[in-house]
Design a protein around this nucleic acid. Structure first.
Ligand SMILES: [Zn+2]
Ligand SMILES: [Zn+2]
Ligand SMILES: [Zn+2]
Ligand SMILES: [Zn+2]
Lengths: 166, 166
DNA sequence: AGGTGAAATGTTATAATATTACACTAGTTT
DNA sequence: AAACTAGTGTAATATTATAACATTTCACCT
């Protein structure tokens, strides 16, 4: 079963993804309740759609999925929800892809750090205090006040490289 | 005088920027000559325009500057030059800004690492082996083959924060 | 329950960034 | 010069994101 080896940071193909979605939605609901925020039906739906996979998804893909057969949603509908979800750290934006992905570390404050596979499209969020410290030290040296961070490493994940996680 | 203190990684307001431009163009010419590449008039002009400042500049800004009064240049004109310059490491793309900036480290191979000031818009390129090593170690742990990196730290630079570098 | 103001959403239009496709030119090789 | 290739011009279109304003929903108060 899905043991939490290091390599599983890139979620195994056979992992129980319904659990990922459920956890994400539960955590979002708890977070919003505790902070007096409204996780409206629309925002909840957008979050759920973002969590449909571990692949960053584009705003216009979401827009299509939100649109019902007869009623077509307009861009601000999804962008406003994405803004809300980002503002509260429930999702991250992947600047190099113009795409959005659920946050895997809702339990603690962190700067976003992603490894993103060019082949399968999956993104793994990984904390590394060494990186955090190094950036903080560099910033201090420069007298630079850090407000936002973007760290996106693109390439090929182990599964795509070797055909399987072995 | 422009002493090379650490803080000058954010170039001082009074630095000799013509020297920056000249160096960048000279290095580009040398690089292209040595590698059998053609630094055409257009590519040279785009590189020069990117180097007009240390602020990442948008493709459409460049496009306007390239256009002469009577003749308006079309997007592919500038995008193709930008692609060439990026492919050969002469400039970097800043994904979080959809903008482009000259490379400050033409003399050695490196992953792009930027500190970008929200207020003055200037970008400082900074190498840090500790970050390099940490990312390499994380990638190895994940079995991830790294192909491209994006590291962009946004915030407020020392000059903007304190009114002057002191 | 009804009134009120703020937050959220709907809707239309448009801005900003980037690519495709195809025609033409210039430079290189034979 | 013919043939080939890399580079550029040009028109159309794709993709991502925001502005502006109307309407609805919700929390709160009376
Ligand atoms: Zn999952
Ligand atoms: Zn996160
Ligand atoms: Zn300079
Ligand atoms: Zn560089």
């Amino acid at each position: 079963m899905a043991s939490k080896k290091e390599k599983d940071l890139f979620p195994a193909a056979n992992h129980d993804h319904k659990a990922c979605i459920k956890t994400a939605l539960n955590e979002a609901e708890r977070y919003c309740r505790e902070n007096g925020l409204r996780l409206t039906e629309l925002r909840r739906r957008v979050l759920e759609l973002v969590w449909a996979s571990h692949r960053p998804v584009g705003a216009y893909d979401l827009l299509e999925k939100i649109s019902s057969n007869n009623r077509k949603a307009a861009p601000p509908t999804v962008y406003r929800s994405l803004d809300f979800l980002m503002e509260h750290g429930l999702i991250h934006r992947i600047a190099s892809l113009n795409a959005y992905v659920g946050c895997s570390h809702l339990d603690h404050h962190h700067a976003p750090r992603f490894f993103i596979c060019d082949q399968c499209g999956e993104a793994a969020e990984l904390d590394d205090p060494v990186i955090d410290d190094a950036i903080a030290r560099d910033a201090k040296r420069l007298g630079f006040r850090v407000e936002r961070q973007t760290l996106e490493i693109s390439g090929v994940c182990a599964t795509c490289e070797h055909g399987s996680t072995g």
